[in-house]
Design a binder for these strands. Structure first.
Lengths: 328, 328
DNA sequence: CGGGGATGTGTCAACGTCAACATATGTCAT
DNA sequence: ATGACATATGTTGACGTTGACACATCCCCG
C-alpha cells in the first residue's frame, strides 16, 4: 500500500479510502491512485484488514460429509449466496464417527477466521455433546429443531411427507408403508412423524416403519421385506436413494411398479426422472435453504433482528412410479 | 495473549513459544501458561498470525458446481486431507456461464487468504481465458492436461475407458457405441479418445459417438437414438448418470439389458449397484484424487520437489448390466 | 464578509503475533 | 578455572491496514 501511495504521490490513508470507497476523495486523486494500483498490481492484504477490523468477511460451514444429495446441493447454494454477499466460505469437515471431533472442529473454526457459522449436520449429533461454541459466535443451523437453541432454516419436512402420503392415499391405497431414515436425523424423524400422523388422521392402519439409513442399500433391504408382504401396495421412502433400492428389490422380486405397488421418494435427485419407472418424489428447494441460511447468518452478523426459524416449502413431483391402487 | 502472559506471570513471547511449541520453555513455565490459557479461554488470532507470518494455512478451491458426483466427492476428500494436514479450506464458486467471473474468482482468492489453489474445473474452460493467476501462487489442477502449464492430478481416464471397452469386447460384442461427455471436459475427451483407440486397435467399426453433457437427460436422449438401431449391442456411457438415462430409454423401448444390450457406465455412483439392472461401471477413486491434489499442493507450498502430473488408477466393477453378446 | 459546513488529504497509533536479538543461568569438556 | 554451548526467558519492532483526529480549502448563506 505504501508503494502505491508513493507511486501516486499521496498518503497511504488516501489509498485506503480509494480501495474502500469511503470518505471524500477527489476525482483526480482517485484516478491517480487507481492507476498506481493497476500498475503495481496491488491487492489489499486481507490478514491485515481482518486484524484491524476484527471481521473476516468469512463464513464457516461445519459438515460431516457431502455425500447425501441435500448436503452438497445446500453447500452449493450457500457458496453462491455467500459469494454474492461478499463473503468467503471456509469448510470444516468433521469426522462423524467421533463425537469429540466436533469440538475440535469448533475450536479450529474459532482459531480460524470466521465471523459466523452454518452447521450442516444432522443436529441430533450435536444435542448431547458438550460443544464449545465460541461465545458470541453467530450460528445458524440447517436441519435442527428448537432444542438446539439456535436459529435454524430447514425444509418443511412435515409438509413434504404429508403431501407424499396424501398423494398415495388419494390414489386409493388403503395404507402406506414407510422406509425411514436414520434415527439421528431430525429430517427422518419429522418425515416419519408426519407419515404416521396422516395415516392416523385417516383412521388407517400404521405398519412398523422399515429402518433405513438413507442409502440405496438399506432401501433395497427394506424393499425385499416389503416385497414379501402381498398386502403392500404403497411405499413412501424417506429419500430417493432408498426409493431406488426399493425399486430394485421390487424389480428383482417380479413386482411391477406402479402396476402392483406405488413408490414415492423424497429429494428429487437429478436422476429421479430417468429411473425406471421415473420416480414420483418430493422436491426440496435446497437453493432456498442455503440462501436463507446465509441471509439469516449475515443478518445476525449485522446485528439485525435475527430470525428464529424458517421452513421452506416442498413440492410434489408426480411421475410414473405411482398409480391407482390395483388389485394385487 | 497479553492477558495470558500477565495471568501466567511471563512475557508474551513465552506464551507464543508455548502455543507454537517452538524454542526452549521450562516445564513449570509451560504448565503455568497452559493453565492460564485454559482459564482465559485464549485462542490465537489467526489474522495476526497470518499478517506476521505471511502464511494463512488455508487452501483455496475454485469450482463451478458441486453437482457432478466427482466434484463433491473430490471436494470431500480434499477437505478431509486438508484438515488432516492442518489446513483450512476456502471455497470460491464461479459462475460457469460467465468466463469473466473466473478472473473475479481468482482476484477474490488472492485478496482472501490462501496459500495455494486447487482448481476443480473442467480445464478447457480455463485454457483460452486470460486468467490472472496471482504470480507465484501455487496451483494444482484436477482434470487438466499439460497445456495448462500447472501440475495436475487426475483419474487415469484412458485406462478406465479402455478397461470398459475391452470388457465389452471380451464379452463378444462386435463393436461398442459411446455416449460421450461434453466437449469442454478433458475427462470426456480422454474417455472418448480411449474408446476410439481400443476399437481401432481391434480393427472394429467406430460409430459416431452420441453427444451428451453428463446429465441423465442427455443419456436418455442418446439411448433413444441407440435403441432405434438394432445393430447396437453394447454401449459405453462416459458417466453413470448418462448410463442411467440410457437404461431408461432401453426399458421404455422394450429392449432388455443385458439380454439384448450391455451397458457400462463410469463413476460408480453409490446408487449404481441398486439400479435395475445393477450397473457395470468404472470406479474412480476420488478420495485418492483429492488426497494427492492436496499433498501435491502442500509439497509445492513447502518448496519440495513439485509433482508434474499424476494419474490415479480406476477399477472395473462388473455388475449385471453387461453380458455376452446375444443374437438380437 | 464572516462563519459554518461540506470536501479533500495527511499523521499517528493500534490491532495480535512472532522473528531477531539480548540476557541470564547452568553444564561440561578441556 | 575457563570458555563453549545448551537452556530458559524477556524486549523490541514490524507485518499492512484503517479509525480517530487534525488540518486545509472552498462554497454558500445570512
Amino acid at each position: 500500500m505504501e508503494d502505491v501511495a508513493r507511486e501516486a504521490g499521496v498518503s497511504g490513508q488516501t489509498v485506503s479510502r480509494v480501495v474502500n470507497d469511503r470518505g471524500y476523495v477527489g476525482a483526480a486523486t482517485r484516478e491517480k491512485v487507481t492507476a498506481a494500483m493497476a500498475r503495481l498490481g496491488y491487492r489489499p492484504n486481507s490478514a491485515a484488514r481482518a486484524l484491524r477490523s476484527g471481521r473476516f468477511r468469512t463464513l464457516g460451514v461445519i459438515m460431516f460429509t457431502l455425500a447425501p444429495y441435500g448436503n452438497h446441493r445446500t453447500l452449493d447454494a450457500i457458496a453462491s449466496r455467500a459469494t454474492e454477499a461478499g463473503y468467503t466460505l471456509t469448510l470444516i469437515p468433521v469426522d462423524a464417527s467421533n463425537r469429540a471431533t466436533v469440538n475440535g472442529a469448533f475450536s479450529r473454526l474459532e482459531e480460524h477466521a470466521v465471523d459466523g457459522i452454518i452447521i450442516l449436520i444432522e443436529a441430533h449429533e450435536l444435542d448431547g455433546s458438550e460443544i464449545e461454541i465460541p461465545p458470541g459466535m453467530p450460528i445458524v443451523v440447517i436441519d435442527s429443531n428448537k432444542r438446539f437453541g439456535h436459529p435454524f432454516v430447514d425444509i418443511d419436512q412435515a409438509q413434504g411427507a404429508r403431501t407424499a402420503v396424501e398423494h398415495l392415499l388419494a390414489l386409493g391405497h388403503e395404507t402406506v408403508h414407510h422406509v425411514a431414515g436414520p434415527p439421528e436425523s431430525y429430517a427422518a424423524e419429522r418425515r416419519q412423524h408426519a407419515w404416521r400422523a396422516v395415516l392416523e388422521e385417516h383412521g388407517l392402519p400404521v405398519s412398523e416403519p422399515q429402518p433405513g439409513d438413507w442409502s440405496a442399500r438399506s432401501g433395497y433391504e427394506a424393499g425385499l421385506r416389503l416385497a414379501a408382504d402381498p398386502s403392500v401396495t404403497a411405499v413412501f421412502a424417506a429419500n430417493d436413494a432408498m426409493a431406488i433400492g426399493v425399486l430394485r428389490a421390487f424389480h428383482e422380486q417380479g413386482i411391477a411398479v406402479p402396476a402392483q405397488v406405488s413408490v414415492v421418494g423424497f429429494d428429487d435427485v437429478p436422476d429421479a426422472a430417468y429411473l425406471w419407472p421415473p420416480l414420483t418424489t418430493i422436491r426440496q428447494s435446497f437453493d432456498e435453504v442455503g440462501r436463507r441460511a446465509v441471509d439469516a447468518l449475515i443478518a445476525e452478523l449485522d446485528g439485525d433482528e435475527p430470525i428464529d426459524q424458517e421452513f421452506i416449502a416442498t413440492e410434489l413431483i408426480v411421475r410414473e412410479s405411482t398409480a391407482k391402487k390395483p388389485t394385487r
